[in-house]
Amino acid sequence: MNDTPPDTTAAAAATELLRYDHVTVHVARLDGPLFAPLSFAIHPGDKLVISAPSRMGKSPALRAAIGAQPGTQGAVFCLGERVSALSPHALLSLRRRVGFVPATGGLLSNLNLYANLTLLLRYHDEVPQEEIDRRAAQVCDELGLGDLTGRPLASANHQERHLIAIARAWLPRPPLLILDDPDFGLDDETASALWERLAALRAAHQVAMLVATSRPRLALRHGGRHLPLRPSEAP
């Protein structure tokens, strides 16, 4: 799969949400690339699962999609824009249109769960509170989260935090969700339930997903393409 050239027909290119052309990440400590060059394209409704053992470069591979990974080589096109050509301001603007969920979840410790969930919507769009409440309730329902109003962050367990981080990224309705190890630290049963909810979300909204995981078996149970990261050859 790594060597498969991306589909370059005009029609396909027009609907591409994300495209990697021979992308890899160079790190100083290795004096070479972290993984073999990646090439793929993602269209609306697609799901691509990148798998690799720990510390092989899954997270850097995903961060390259939004221009947040130093040392990225190759060409990354996200939502029609060449990421390496964007100014810092334009990069922030691009990131607002992509739902990126880091492996840690990245929930803010000084906000309660509801404020975390609605942060992006309040920050980027400044939509009226009633609309925020309506959309938050809908997303909570879709992802099986209960009422989060007034709940402190500390009251959420590991699985809930993962789901709230995903819900936060999904609330502004981006066309592409990038999920870094969303089932990290979850047992198989809980992870299966998470993937089930994500599959339902994808089916209902045709949202494209780029996922990195060390457990591709669970991630691929509900469909999607598989792209194992290969170690780079010696420089």
Partner: peptide
């Protein structure tokens, strides 16, 4: 916030 990856998460979310 830095240790917990919260600042990076803000940046990656366009904030």
């Amino acid at each position: 916030m830095r240790v917990g990856g919260e600042i990076d998460a803000l940046d990656h979310a366009g904030i």
